[in-house]
Design a binder for these strands. Structure first.
Lengths: 226, 226
DNA sequence: ACCCGGTTGTAACGATTGTTACAACACCAT
DNA sequence: ATGGTGTTGTAACAATCGTTACAACCGGGT
């Protein structure tokens, strides 16, 4: 059953770079399962125990948070080879932070935490991969907090543009204002307004998703001041 | 040299719950060092490679971030048995996210990442402990982001009070307004003002660091609305 | 060419928060 | 008791952002 999906596993963060033959050997005789979920079914609910490392073999799932008012808020979509909530398998909490729902018919590979710990122990590549995965998660979140704590929307935009440009004075941002505003944690019209004002002040020249930065030093200076 | 500090190591997140004798056996013949830093010296600088797992044996260090404008911003103090930047030893980044400075004369135990990986592999307790440690870090950050993205200061306060009360209608908060405001990412007077307004509206009765919640449902309702 | 859904641009107004400055208070050490 | 230091309370004003509503624009499908 797993054999046909070994090439998906090699692409996952845990098994990354490990030849399929090796994966097969590593998993041979180990306790793990493949489970299928039909479209729309709930894979796990916020607060329920997170005991299994789970990797998507086929299909797609959505991570959704139920807001305190009951509103549903989509957090992210995950496709084949992605792990589900890898940072909640260990640590104090050990429960799902979001509702996980199958967007389409979905196949998961899963292994219990205790069995998985032993698996990690048995192969240094696996161990390093998994350590990388949760460390990356922590690093990403840490960076995100730094970003969110810029004092103003303008500062966030400056930082974002400087990062995104990677030195090119002209570039394209393949995100809608809606997506950007969610990333920044502000309202969409506020974002558009700020971009317009930055245009008027000559900090940038933008037209829809194309951005041009005439003078990098102006943006940098703005970040340093505030 | 290490022997006298084994009881510090047992209290660290990695070696937690492992008898000192076992730690001694685990470390026997392994490549690791004890390094000392005099008061005020820089242990590591933002951006330099993070290659060693480091645990404070004695002393105290401060993690500081240099703001983009050059202002120094203290992030946290760490004392004996604490690890330095455990989430940056693995993953993509692998460089220190902050300047680490010895506040007093300080002694560190350190081991290179590659050697440490092997050590983790050799003992399941160690492995689970370290996985717990970085998972906890990711979980903490994730919770913090959720908190920061409440739309208003009042919502943050409601959430915080409800969490902190743990069901008791009267409790004390052992943090200054200054500390709270930094936690919330707002200015200190804004915090005091909001607390005063919540008092006037009868949501809470507070006097300095003592808080009383006359009606929990009012606070909950406020969180659900917005 | 036309319509349509989604995206972007714009404006007015209100709500929230930051800034600054100072007064009142608590606590500790002398 | 006195003074010093740090914390809390308060006020006025400015800056920033959210909200709402609507117009203009884009691209794809018919």
């Amino acid at each position: 059953m797993i054999h046909e999906y070994l090439d998906i596993l090699t692409e996952s963060a845990v098994f990354y770079g490990i030849p399929t033959d090796d994966i097969q050997n590593l998993l041979d005789g180990k306790l793990c399962q493949v489970k299928s979920f039909s479209k729309g079914s709930m894979i796990s609910q916020t607060g329920t125990p997170c005991e299994y490392i789970r990797i998507i073999l086929d299909g797609q799932v959505a991570g959704e948070m139920t807001d305190l008012s009951g509103k549903i808020l989509k957090i992210e979509d995950l496709g084949p080879s992605k792990m589900i909530a890898p940072a909640f398998l260990y640590g104090r909490r050990r429960t799902y932070p979001v509702n996980v729902i199958a967007s389409v018919n979905t196949l998961l590979w899963q292994m219990h935490r205790d069995e998985f710990s032993k698996l990690l122990q048995s192969d240094l590549r696996l161990l390093n991969n998994y350590l990388d995965a949760i460390s990356n998660r922590a690093q990403f979140l840490s960076e995100k907090i730094r970003f969110l704590s810029f004092p103003t929307l303008r500062a966030k935009l400056c930082f974002f543009f400087l990062q995104y440009s990677a030195g090119n004075s002209s570039f394209r941002i393949p995100l809608t204002h809606q997506q950007l505003s969610e990333l920044f944690g502000v309202a969409r019209p506020s974002l558009t307004r700020e971009i317009r004002q930055m245009n008027q002040e000559g900090l940038i020249n933008s037209e829809r998703d194309m951005i041009n930065i005439p003078d990098f030093s102006k943006l940098r200076k703005l970040l340093e001041e505030k």
